[in-house]
Simulated assay, not measured.
Amino acid sequence: MTPITEQSSLYDQLENKSVEELTRYINQEDAKVAKVIEGVLPSVNNLITAIVDKLKAGGRMFYLGAGSGGRLSVLDVIELPTTYGLPKGIYNTVLAGGIDRLADALEEKEDDVDEGWNALVNAGINSGDIVVGISASGTTPFVLEGLKKCRLLNITTGCIVSNPSTPISAQSDYPVEVVTGPEFITGSTRMKCGTAQKMLFDMISTTVMIRIGRIEGNNMINVKLINDKILDRGVKMLMQKAEIESYDEAKSILLEHGTVKNALDKVTNRHN
Rank of each mutant, 00 (worst) to 15 (best):
M237Y: 13
R211E: 10
N16L: 09
V131F: 09
P164V: 06
K261A: 14
D232W: 10
L10H: 07
L72I: 13
S73M: 05
L86W: 00
G146V: 03
G234W: 13
L22G: 02
E110N: 12
E6F: 00
Q13S: 13
M239N: 05
G70R: 04
P167W: 06
P3R: 07
S252K: 15
K17I: 12
S252A: 15
L14Q: 11
R214F: 12
N45D: 14
T49N: 13
A136T: 10
I253K: 03
N262K: 14
M199T: 07
A103H: 15
A34Y: 00
D100Q: 15
H257T: 00
K241H: 14
R233Y: 09
S127P: 15
E256W: 05
D112C: 00
T207D: 11
G217P: 10
D248E: 11
E20W: 07
D129P: 12
K236R: 14
M1R: 00
N227W: 07
E38C: 02
P42D: 09
R214K: 15
M220T: 06
G213S: 14
G187A: 11
N269F: 15
E177W: 06
A50D: 10
D228R: 15
G97L: 06
T49Y: 08
N222Q: 01
G133R: 08
V52M: 07
K266Q: 14
Q240G: 15
V178M: 13
T140I: 03
I37W: 04
C193I: 13
P175R: 03
L254W: 06
F142A: 01
N218D: 14
Y63K: 05
G85N: 05
R71W: 05
V33G: 01
T268V: 15
S137L: 09
G217W: 14
I155A: 04
L144Q: 11
D173L: 12
R151G: 06
I212P: 01
G138D: 02
G138L: 04
I168V: 09
L153N: 15
L231P: 04
N163R: 02
V77W: 07
H257R: 06
T166I: 00
G194Y: 02
H271V: 08
I155G: 01
R71K: 09
P182A: 12
I26K: 05
G187V: 11
A31R: 09
N46Y: 12
G133H: 12
V176E: 10
L75I: 10
E243G: 09
K261L: 13
V267E: 08
L86S: 01
L14S: 03
G146F: 09
N118R: 08
L72T: 11
S9L: 01
A66D: 12
N45F: 08
A31F: 04
L120I: 04
R151K: 13
N16M: 06
R190S: 06
E245D: 15
D12I: 09
S43K: 14
L72D: 11
